[in-house]
Amino acid sequence: MRGIVFSDKTETLVQALTFFRQKMEVDAAVPAENTQPLQEYGAKRLYALQGTGFSDNVSEAILGIIEREKYDFIFIMSTALGREVAGIISDRLGKEIIAEVFDFNLDNSKVRTKRFAWGGKTVTEEESDCRIFTVMPGMTEASRTSEKSEVVQVKLNDSKISLVQSIPKSSSTVDLEHANIIVSVGRGIGKKESIDLVMPFVRAVKGELAGSRPVCLDYQWLSEDRQVGLSGRKVKPKLYIAIGISGQIQHIAGMRGSKTVIAINKDKSAPIFEEADFGIVGDLFQIVPALVKALQQ
């Protein structure tokens, strides 16, 4: 069996290569500027896509590689670009696709996959003849191999789309995926200024600060790259501390992999308590400073 993995994000690609190289022989396609750190993750061949990539020309390049190499499986990592490319490629190949899988197993000629359904409320396990998938980040921990990939340069064709400008985001240094302890705040903190009150606690536990979707997207109290949830980061820290987070299923889907979960919420019936190992029902503005004090003793 042979497969190819595409991702425009190095971090998710190395996870996927680590996972899929144990199931089959894999190649990978990546933007050329990402080639360097990727050569030791078990891809036999690494196709370096040269030029500015958009959904159309990246899809075309990958379709060209697929046509030549006749892969059994195509895996596209779920990023903004990846999902678009997956839509285009699956249409052009006329092949059925399963999206957002987080587990994949070969069972004779069939494939068994798992993905979240109903907004993350359930996990659906499916059996199919599908050969193309989009893959959620975080399938496994990335690890290196001793063999180096052979790098093949591929020039991207011109796109119908043109790039006018690239705007860097200010705080893309947040590394929630590797954090040992995450302190995550939700709507319950009430206002942006309350984050200042939570910060002494974040420092006391030597944690990373994160937030729910409303906090990061709707109110923008925190930057988007700190959002934990089905549509944000999927994290698995040793300890996840949810403060003022009700525990909507979209949020749970992003932190379910945490080893231990602590919840602080004033609402006794908040769903977060169903997903917590330890919790206190009460006013976070009393509890959080009390915890800081207790930790310093």
Partner: peptide, 13 residues
């Protein structure tokens, strides 16, 4: 509900 995000690419194609 499903977060597939495939429709924009498919329709563009």
């Amino acid at each position: 509900d499903t977060y597939t995000g495939l429709l924009p690419g498919k329709i563009s194609s």
